[in-house]
Amino acid sequence: MTDAMGVCAALIAAGIQAGTALLLAALGELVLERAGVLNLGIEGIMLVGALAAFAASHAGVNPGLAVACAGGAGLCMGLLHGSVTVLLGANQVVAGLALLMLGTGISGFFGQRLIGQTAPGLDSLPVPLLADIPLAGRAFFRHDPLTYAGVLLVPSIAFILMRTTWGLALRAVGENPEAADAHGISVVKVRMLASAFAGILAGIGGAHLSLAYNQMWIERMVAGRGWIALAVVIFSCWRPYRALFGAYLFGLVGAATFRFQALGSPVSAPLLQTLPYLTTIAVLVLVAWRSRRHTMDAPAALTVPFRREERR
């Protein structure tokens, strides 16, 4: 019995670990989409962030500062997307896909010399006292600093979005930019800041993959997690707490598929791997069914470029 509980605790811990990169990237994207901008290039930003963090740590930078480097690299990528889509009003979908290519290329090109190298990473940081609780300690309180940061970000972002004037301004820009503009809010400024924020968080999400979850750099190591982060945002209906739920759920079901195999499940691996995707759809359908809500509350001005009308 205790053995089974131990496996469960390990599973929860693995799910949280696997979900953290998704959560960080999804939180940034959530804020950005709330401001009315869609960035499909999250995967590319995460790759650049992962490389920047690992390269910095490899060069002798303290791992904490290396995470900041990843944030900085992500910031640049986010601003690049922002300047094309927000300042110039270019198509957000194409710009996101272009950013993906660019991020894949930049990280691959500059990462060549770091293949097979080691660097100090972010080790797990047990929470004093709580980490010693049997089972729960192992499941929840023995993670790396970025995991805790991700969890703490959720209420902070939820509070800022829903309870502050900044949040109100951001949401207004995403729902009705013309009205926000009429109230004296600078739509461009808000959207650029959101682009920067989303870039930083996606970069840090990448850093979690190269410094904490794994401590290495491998070309294209994000392996599609940027797309899953986008799915998490939609799954969350643009609400931070539900993003936390979605990211951890996806991580947990993914981690469970390997454990089913290790425990001797006879189902073929590809079919087992459909579980996280099927679960995501199932939960979303269930929520929609129960709440009978017909709109999923996407920001009304998402993907709509804003152009201030000339006043004559």
């Binding site: 693995a14 993959l209 979850y213 294209r220 392996a223 981690a255 390997f258 195999q261």
Partner: peptide
């Protein structure tokens, strides 16, 4: 190659 998946597979074993 998917280092995160490979790590998780090893952990589950």
């Amino acid at each position: 190659y998917d280092p995160a998946a490979e790590k998780d597979a090893a952990l589950s074993l």
